[in-house]
Design a protein around this nucleic acid. Sequence first.
RNA 1: GCGGGCGUAGUCCAACGGUAGAGACAGAGGACUUAAAAUCCUUCCAGUGUGGGUUCGAAUCCCACCGCCCGCACCA
Length: 871
Amino acid sequence: MIDDAGVSRMARYDAGQAEPKWQKAWTEKGCFETREGAGHADRPKYYVLEMFPYPSGRIHMGHVRNYAMGDVVARTKAAQGFDVLHPMGWDAFGMPAENAAMERGSHPATWTYANIDAMRTQLQAMGLAIDWSREFATCDPEYYAQQQALFLDFLDANLLTRKSATVNWDPVDMTVLANEQVIDGCGWRSGAPVEKRELTQWFFRITDYAEDLLEALDTLDGWPEKVRVMQRNWIGKSHGLQMRFEIEANQLAPDWPELEVYTTRPDTLYGMGFAAVSPEHPLAKALAEKVEGLTAFIEECRKLGTSEEALEKAEKKGFDTGLRVKHPFSGESFPVYVANFILMDYGTGAIFGCAAHDQRDLDFARKYDLKVVPVVCPADADPASFDVGDEAYVGPGSIINSDFLNGMEIEAAKNAVADRLSAAGMGEKTTNYRLRDWGVSRQRYWGAPIPVVHCDACGVVPEKKENLPVRLPDDVTFDRPGNPLERHPTWKHVPCPACGKDATRETDTMDTFVDSSWYFARFCSPRAETPTTRAEVDRWLPVDQYIGGIEHAILHLLYSRFFARAMAKTGHLSPDSVEPFKALFTQGMVTHETYSRKVKTAEGIERDVFFTPDEVSRGEDGTMRDSDGQPVTVGPTIKMSKSKRNTIDPEAIIARYGADTARWFMLSDSPPERDVEWTESGAEGAARHLQRVWRLVTEAADKIGASSGAATGTSDLRKTTHRAIRAVTDDIAAFRFNKAVAQIYGLTNAIAADKGSDPAALREAVETLIILMAPMTPHLAEEAWAALGHDAMVVEAPWPEADPDLLVDDTVTMPVQVNGKKRAEIVVAADAPKDVVEKAALAEDAVMKLLDGGSPKKVIVVPGRIVNVVL
RNA sequence: GCGGGCGUAGUCCAACGGUAGAGACAGAGGACUUAAAAUCCUUCCAGUGUGGGUUCGAAUCCCACCGCCCGCACCA
């Protein structure tokens, strides 16, 4: 940027100089520190929280957007008289720190805390209104000590269980994953296909709360419907029947007199064609020892399991075990298969197959030539001839081919079957959930150690609370895969807390999602010697506004809801705080164009090579790579990502334009829930606007001088000012930051266009502009506020109130439609009665011409809005 | 396949069922300047994805279809 002559250089707003100055001023005055204890109990509380970052080392534009939004809320609420809690911390445990340690031969803590320092500096450069005195990282022993205390309390309250289970094993990260962390059959972090393993693990009993977590979703009206739907589906409640089939006498499985299945369609019991169990079903395992080929089949299923399945569009495969079950009513005999499409995780891991009314069962039956009997007949079909082809019929209808059920509707038939089976002691109605217990054991170092000891004599013994924290040892190595805690020479050898004999520590650590499931509560009293202090959590929780990415719609948000319930049960939270987040806002992503070229590798494979925005320039002939002057392909606008190299570094933007510009641009244009595209021209436009505001303010400061009388009258400028107050206030409250920004542009334009307003009205307009902008561009606002002669800071200024008298007009311009088409405009008094408005409309030339002397069929007058004349 | 969302100027986006345009970006012209930058002024551009319906009146409500995005996905 070329510097200009001295005069205009003086006039320019220098963000690089102003921003650190005001950040220092805020910090010195403790503007954002929220007091504990009595605090500001006279003021209503407001807790605003953005999802805390993982300390990867650098902030990205997604952070800028997220924290800019939260900051607008925090600053606006503070100006509106709320006692605001707006803290920040670090979600600091997890695999990347271990990976970094492996690569660099250093310690995860070194890497993590260095990253935290770097990111704190970057976040502070954004000028966020954060109470940094409450900062903590989840890897601080002070934090995980309290998490271990929670774990022990949960254990005591039967909220935890230790059980052997088939778990998802990530072969790359060499650790267990929760169901929620398996995406398309692959580990959420490593992307490697997940394997099944049998391990003894700690589980939080989240399924005990399945019904509560589901029902309470209806009360979360401050949450996006989308997220509630996703959680509802995840919990996956279904009503059905758990029933038992008698297994016919055989040599193969003499210990198995019956097979238990779960069904939501007991009405189709007479349509049964086969029974099937999961390859992981105990019966399958028992049979595998005796039935030739079954072991191989099960092994094949296990391997295919999850990854290829998606590609191959799930071909149904089965293995006839030779076993047969008896129909409970007809006595008919049906084969039992082991089938690859039966999930062990759901229901009982076994089904009865009704081919005619379930697509999967039909595919399977056609393949193995099994019986297909339609038992539900649609209303418009002939029961005598109704049959299915290759498409199962799943719609409503009446029951056929089903003995005592014939003629019933589906619901009645379900009940009839359930009644008869339960009377015979062969089944009962059950409610089933898709939600599984939350397995939290991880075979990793960089996590909170699970505070239990294994003793040969006493079994699993909880560590004593006074011995917390169970600290991670510092002297560990990462030169080999696996868990360093396991192979540490001394760490795990401890006396049993119960009997004092030699025993072994648990070497598993907790899933990092545990860390983030209660940090919002810890912020209320971050230095307490207990996990929470009731006075503080009772004052602050629930979080009034939580802001973060949609990617946490299930995992983090569901776990946190469970944790709040568990903490309430163990006395760490009020029973009123079981919903930790009163309102949730999920912001969109930050996107950018991509720049690439097709390049052939040595093997002759064509692939894309990407370039960063810094490496290319847009010219008249298209977009070129600077280093070689050759064109690049401008690709789709997608989420900023390292792999596509379409990232913009916030630090560079702040250095170039200032934090206010970055914040302003992030809030402009796109609605916050939608994706926003970062463009160079957009950023420049934002910077230009801030310069313009600065210029208007300094010009106005000259005009206003020292005059300080209150503005009076009803000038256009005053009306515009007060309308902006109303609109911006409403827009910010409703998370319509893009509209608030547009309103501020409107007010800015009005001030720029204003010629003759009196100094008082001009002062009012300019000061309003500054205060309305302050939540978004706080540094510029302070600088401008000072330029107008204020000694106090704008953060201390109260939010303005709109004067209702200035929001209404005396007269309004109303369009006049004839048959829905606009033909004229009339100007009438705002409170003119309908008949006056009607008369004025009908007196318009254009209307009279169309009326042609006749009288209208109807005249609709919407006061203040429109007149429609119907001929 | 199921569920949710979105389609409005060249672009991003506004519009209680009531004049399609608040605002921004980009473009064009002009002013200032030796020139450029910066700044200021003026200005072009769509009738709302498509087809129906409800209504005095539809971008908005309803139905169908098309396109894009996001979840979930053998859940018995």
